[in-house]
Structures are given as structure tokens and as C-alpha cells.
Amino acid sequence: MRIEEAKKIYIFSLGLRIWHWVNFLTIITLFVTGLYIGRAFFSGPTGVEATYAYEEGLTMGFIRKVHFIAGYVLLASFIFRLLIALFSKRDRLVLPTFWRRNYWVGLKEITLKYLLIMRDDEGHEYIRNACARTVYPLVYLAILFMIVTGFGMYGMSNPSGFWASLFGWIVWFLGGEFPTHMWHHWIAWLIIIFAVLHVYFVVREEAIKKNGELSSMFNGYKFFKERPVDLDDIK
């Protein structure tokens, strides 16, 4: 397919693109620091009095501080994401459209394509395929879950403080603080496994269709041969 024949459509707003990359960077930071918190796989400075070692190098105290700062950034960017969705239609693309026929047709097509039964240039074109439409909302839920459990555990150092009164309930809902730690840990891995597959499917789309998929999260545009059936979702 040559670019001239294709329609160039503006899909992702600047706000969404900024959110996406801030979100990506914070989650990677949270994951790496979180893994250390869960399993301290190297020791802090030795030969130094603990009281002073605290301020030297990569210590548990420092890594936790980074985790919590990134946690605040994640919360802020999540709220930002909700706000832009409130005010602009194109930022609501994430909502799955179960009630429409084209969602189900799309789900059948994308499944056949991923099973290699159908070629990727067959079937209809979509702004966002049904598989992504289904998974992204779950990713937002997973991020929200990490925020709630994270700030729950964080806040319980003062059970009558602000964060605990906001998110402390999750600790008891999950059956205590130890299970909350475990859930926080499991869902962390789930998000990373999503990220691996997510990057794969983005690269795959780019490699097969050369439709600007990969660059779309930077400049906002994708290319289409025909009119995407779900074009109305962003117009």
C-alpha cells in the first residue's frame, strides 16, 4: 500500500499521548522498584552504621521513596486521563462498544487474524480493533487497582490519616494487609505481561500494515485504506 492512497486520520489527542508515555515511564519505574521491595535481591551499603547507611546509595529506603513518588505521579496522571476523557470525545475511544454489531464482527475478525486463519488485509478496517477495545479498559482497571492497593498500604502507617480513610478499606476487603501485598505483587506482573503483548501487537500491526501504528502514539495519526467502520467514535 502506498501512502498517497491512504487516508491519514488524526486519532490520539496530545493529552492522551502525553498521558501514555508518562504512564509508561512511571509503571516501569514502579515495577522495577516494586520488585526490589518485594524481594530485596541486593544488599544496601555494608560496613556503615544503619542510621547513616540510610542516606548512602541504593538503599531500601531510597527505593521505596522512588516507588512512592512514582505512585503519586501515577495517581496524578490517572486523574488527568479521566479528566480528558470527560471533556473530549476522542479520548473516550477506550470504552468498549459491546452494544454495537461492529464490535462483535470485529472481535470475530481479529480472533481469526491472530489465529492466522484470516489475512490482516482482509475484513474491515478499524480505528481500534475489538481485542484492544476489550483489553485496554481492563488495563485501566488494573492500574486503578494498583493505585488503590498501593495507597492503601502506604496510608496504613497512619490508619486514621488521609490516605487510609480514602483507600484503607481495600486492605480489609482483600482479607488483611499481607494478602494486599500479594495482590499488589500479582497484578504488577499482570500489567507487565500485558505490556509485553501490547508492544508485540503494536509492532506486529506496524510491520504488517505499515499504517503508522507505532508512531501514532507520538504524533497522533494512523493511515487507513478505506473508511474505518468505527470512525464515528472519534468524530
Binding site: A40, F42, S43, G44, P45, T46, V48, A50, T51, A53, Y54, L58, T59, M60, G61, I63, R64, M156, S157, P159, S160, E177
Partner: peptide
């Protein structure tokens, strides 16, 4: 109202990664 961890006298070693 307190976690053992938040009152533990070994907490300095935790923070220092020892």
C-alpha cells in the same frame, strides 16, 4: 493502630537495605 514494622527497633536496617 501500628504495624510492628513501624515501631520495630530494627527498622533502620530495613531502610538501609541490611
Amino acid at each position: 493502630g501500628n504495624r510492628i514494622h513501624d515501631t520495630c527497633y530494627r527498622r533502620a536496617f530495613f531502610n538501609a537495605g541490611q
